[in-house]
Computed example of a mutant assay.
Amino acid sequence: MPQIAQLTADNWYLASQLFWLLVVFAGIYVVIGRGMLPKIEATVDARDRKVADDLAAAKAAHAAADALEESYRQQTEASRAAAQKAVADAKGKAARDAEKRLAKVDVELGEKLSLAEADIAAARKSAMAEIESVAVEAASDLVAKLSGAKVAAADAKAAVKAVLHG
């Protein structure tokens, strides 16, 4: 192979190739090591700082959200307790009002019942008096029709009273 033969035959080529190899590597080192690498490191460091800052902000936001959630939960429980108390108070008041109304209605119904019983007793007494007078007339008429005898009103009344009252 001619490339390998060049290396062994003449040192001039070897030195020249080594020189240019060193020049190229030095150029690459200068361009990449001194020019690009600090920029890349700065970018990586900035990204690391940004990530760390974002993580710290996220932890702070998470802690704030937890505190807000706990505050919301306490407010909700307090509101629920207040609502339950208000409902219990309203039920108690409604029960007391209902008892008052029922007592008032009970008194009114008692009065109406007493009046109705008095009216019924008066109507019964009136009806019994009318039945008694109708029975007296009917008994007088029946005796007159059946036997042809005339019965005195006082006798007929006494007979009807005896039958009706026992």
Rank of each mutant, 00 (worst) to 15 (best):
A61C: 00
D106W: 01
K39C: 06
L115G: 09
Y13K: 01
K85W: 05
S114E: 11
H165G: 00
D66T: 11
V23K: 05
V134E: 09
E117C: 00
A90Y: 04
E77A: 05
V163A: 08
E117M: 07
V24C: 03
A46E: 04
E137S: 14
L21S: 12
G166P: 04
V143M: 01
D89T: 13
A121Y: 04
D48L: 09
L22M: 04
A129E: 12
R49T: 09
A118P: 02
P2R: 14
S16Q: 10
E99N: 02
A95P: 01
V105T: 13
A154D: 15
V44F: 13
E41H: 10
N11L: 13
M36V: 15
D53L: 10
I131D: 02
G33C: 08
N11I: 11
V30W: 15
Y29E: 10
A159D: 02
V143R: 02
A122I: 03
V23M: 06
E130R: 08
V51K: 05
G110P: 00
A58T: 07
S79N: 14
A63M: 08
A153N: 01
S16C: 06
D48T: 11
L68A: 15
A67H: 11
L37H: 07
K91N: 07
A153W: 06
L142Q: 06
I28G: 07
D45Y: 06
A83H: 05
A90D: 11
L55S: 10
K85L: 14
K104I: 03
A90E: 11
A154P: 00
L14C: 10
K39R: 12
V44S: 10
K145C: 06
W12E: 09
G27W: 07
F25Y: 02
A88T: 09
D54S: 14
A46I: 00
A42G: 13
L21G: 15
S114G: 04
R101P: 01
R80F: 12
V163E: 06
K85V: 02
P2W: 13
E137W: 06
F25D: 13
R73E: 15
E70D: 14
K100G: 07
L142G: 01
S147E: 08
E132T: 13
A103M: 08
V136W: 02
A159Q: 06
L55P: 00
A63P: 01
A135E: 03
A15T: 05
S133C: 00
L22H: 04
A90V: 02
R101V: 12
K104S: 15
S133G: 01
S114K: 09
L37Q: 07
K112R: 13
K112E: 11
A152V: 08
A65C: 04
R101H: 10
V143E: 03
A86G: 03
R47L: 14
